[in-house]
């Protein structure tokens, strides 16, 4: 698609000459489409815990995962790895979190290593329609 399609420029930019980052939308480029936001809970048993969400799509999805620093806290962190849980500079809990797509089980997998026995963390996973690979 080189000469036809849909383009919308940002305020103040000419749509005929705008570069991609000066556009609000261009049909030339794919948008990340949100399929849904899924919820799960990790419960620490001993020193670790994990949970899974079944892949709602028939292919590996792009996703972003977040979890709350403490069950019901309303404070959500992205599940980057290594992600040390460090809450408010006061309640420092040396733990690591992980979010990954498991191609063997076709599941989204979330784990926390460390933390306090019995501690729960709510996971929010944004699943996109777009393929991971």
């Amino acid at each position: 698609m080189s000469n036809y399609g849909i383009k919308i420029s940002k305020d103040g930019y000419d749509v005929k000459t705008a570069t991609p980052d000066q556009l609000v939308y261009s049909s030339k480029y794919s948008n990340l489409k949100i399929f849904g936001v899924y919820t799960a809970t990790v419960t620490i048993s001993g020193t670790a815990g994990f949970t899974t969400i079944a892949n709602p799509l028939g292919y590996p999805p792009l996703f972003m995962a977040y979890f709350d620093v403490s069950h019901g806290s309303g404070k959500y962190r992205e599940m980057t790895s290594p992600g040390t849980i460090y809450y408010d500079l006061v309640d420092y809990i040396p733990a690591f979190c992980l979010a990954e797509y498991n191609s063997s089980t076709d599941e989204l997998y979330f784990s926390v290593i460390g933390g306090t026995d019995g501690q729960q963390y709510d996971v929010k996973c944004v699943v996109f329609v777009d393929k991971l690979y």
Binding site: S27, K28, S30, N31, K33, I34, F35, L57, V129
Partner: peptide, 25 residues
Amino acid sequence: KVSKDGKDITDIDKEMSFSSKYRNL
């Protein structure tokens, strides 16, 4: 719906560049 380059507009959702069925970031 807007299909990706080279894809048919009647193809499945993951082959769409844009679809009003789904929210975009």
